[in-house]
């Protein structure tokens, strides 16, 4: 263990090349996520949140600045990372079990085939998919597919989990169910997580810290430490404390959208 945060972005600047010249998406972005912490990133649409995930996953290189994972500069994809997207992207020709096992076919593992299945089975059990391991993705509901996709993202015990709006396409009740599932997974499997989301309630329910990105080109406009006591329950979202945090975030989003002037000064502002 080092003092270095598990995920660190240092003055990251990035622009897309388009026919009309460069389109800046990130500007001097700084984010630190200590080991084991859960960080949520919120911001207006199209502010470069997905770009951020691709940079950390090593699928893209930043124009400027450093992206650091477990103390090392990210130069390309690393198998210590797990990813889940809004689209569960399960392979339709495989059973749920074989979908979950997919990363273990790529990442070197010491587990025998039987141990791999056992591990996948215990994860499926944890997310409530026991009994569905031999079904095909097309036989499952959207929420169940997303659960399977989460199992696949962590089956190889990644140190870092990157979640790009994984619950965005689900209905409100399924989403709340999956939030709970996420907490259960975190209790069983330690990982450092970065969650991209549009849902402020989701961000404070799941994360230890919420980062608000400004409009494009995005920079860290505001950082909020989430402080709930003890184990988190959905009821916590209906307390005064939650309402206060949500109203701060709401206000920051409006600043990011350019609808109200920026009045951040000192305090928790980044």
């Amino acid at each position: 263990m080092t003092d270095m945060p598990q995920i660190a972005l240092r003055n990251v600047t990035h622009a897309y090349k388009t026919d009309d010249g460069p389109l800046p998406v990130l500007r001097d972005l700084n984010i630190d996520i200590p080991e084991g912490e859960f960080c949520a990133v919120v911001g207006p649409s199209g502010c470069g949140k997905s770009t951020l995930t691709r940079l950390i996953a090593g699928l893209m290189r930043a124009d400027e600045g450093d992206v650091i994972l477990h103390g090392e500069m990210v130069k390309g994809p690393k198998n210590t990372v797990g990813m889940a997207f809004q689209n569960p992207v399960l392979l339709e020709w495989r059973t749920i079990m074989d979908n979950v096992l997919l990363p273990l076919e790529i990442v070197p593992t010491k587990l025998t085939k039987a141990q791999q299945r056992e591990r996948a089975m215990s994860l499926l059990e944890l997310v409530g998919l026991r009994g569905f391991e031999d079904k095909r993705p097309s036989e499952l509901s959207g929420g169940m597919r997303q659960r399977a996709s989460l199992c696949r993202a962590i089956v190889h015990k990644p140190e870092v989990l990157i979640l790009d709006e994984p619950f965005g396409a689900l209905d409100a009740f399924t989403r709340e169910d999956l939030w709970q599932t996420m907490h259960n997974l975190r209790a069983e499997e330690p990982f450092t997580a970065l969650l991209i989301t549009h849902d402020l309630r989701e961000s404070i329910f799941l994360a230890d810290e919420v980062v608000v990105l400004s409009g494009r080109p995005a920079t860290a406009q505001y950082k909020l430490k989430v402080t709930f006591e003890g184990e988190r329950k959905l009821d916590d979202l209906y307390t005064q404390k939650a309402t206060d945090m949500l109203s701060i975030l709401r206000h920051q989003i409006e600043i990011a959208q350019g609808r109200v002037p920026n009045d951040n000064s000192g305090g928790e502002a980044a």
Binding site: A57, N79, V81, E92
Partner: peptide, 25 residues
């Protein structure tokens, strides 16, 4: 692209992505 990304983010080669995803799909 997400289909590619789930394997690419694990460091899979282009050939592996072709065999495991592009071809069957």
């Amino acid at each position: 692209p997400e289909y590619r990304d789930i394997l690419r983010s694990l460091g899979a080669s282009k050939l592996t992505i072709f065999w495991k995803i592009a071809l069957p799909k």
